[in-house]
Amino acid sequence: MNIDGLNNGIVLDHITAGKGMQIYEMLKLDKLDCTVAIIQNATSSKLGRKDIIKLDTVIDLNYDMIAFVDSNVTIDIIKDGRVCEKRSVKLPETLKNIISCHNPRCITSTEQGIDQIFHLVDPDRRIYRCAYCDTEYSEK
């Protein structure tokens, strides 16, 4: 793949430097059979440094997941070598099966088959709470 120019595919641009791999892992891009390029620490006039992910095919992506990791990301859909759609992502009000509750007293720790649901309670501080036990999500 020519990472400078895509004929058909998706470009995840303006990823905060250092978050490219996290998005790659959460979206499970390693499971795809298309070509995937990750560019880390690219120079950006807007951000100083940024990461970029390029896919040489157009697939459905979980935009909530991308926004949860980094709401700066912009998504360009490329067709016939041209950007045919440009999207930004917004921190979702609800996350479903994207993150898991770490509270051992939460029903999700024992009950099989229920969705992991989190609600955004503070957009400024990006705080999500578990819909079942109200525990604030932390990555620890």
């Binding site: 007293r105 939460c106 029903i107 009950e111 099989q112 088959g113 229920i114 578990c130 079942y132």
Partner: peptide, 29 residues
């Protein structure tokens, strides 16, 4: 048995349920 299954069955026999559970969020489920 899961909370979900227990309650689905009990709700066939009773008109209303009062539930206490040690796990947080169990009544919501």
């Amino acid at each position: 048995e899961s909370v979900a299954d227990t309650v689905q069955i009990v709700s066939l026999y009773a008109d209303i349920i009062a539930m206490r559970h040690p796990k947080e969020g169990a009544p919501l489920v």
